[in-house]
Amino acid sequence: MASLGLYNYWLVIALMMIGFYIVITSPNLVKKIIGLNIFQASVFVLYITMGKIIGGSAPILSDQIAVYSNPLPHVLILTAIVVGVATTAVGLSLVVRIYAAYGTMEEDEIEKIEAQEEVPT
């Protein structure tokens, strides 16, 4: 079992970094939010990984079971998932408004339009 060791954490970190890379390199705002979602889901996996006990069972009490996985990360992440989708919705609605105002959702094009608007005044 020891062979598995920290391997799980490293894979989760690789997933997080892919999400992070999408957030910082993609100028498209919807793609940025998708990247953020991937980052978020990876953080959830990291938390749940820490709560797992090998040989344990789901934390629903029963007389036949002696070892349970840690319920605390489950509680934290359970609420975080629903809050996460609510905040994602706010982000997406901001994107919709930005698109309505500028006709684009590419970050650099928005900056270009803003620069052009500033020149005449």
Binding site: A58, I60, L78, T79, I81, V82
Partner: peptide, 12 residues
Amino acid sequence: DFGPGGGFQAGV
């Protein structure tokens, strides 16, 4: 209370 579930999941 007895199995997996609760307000968040049910609402969704």
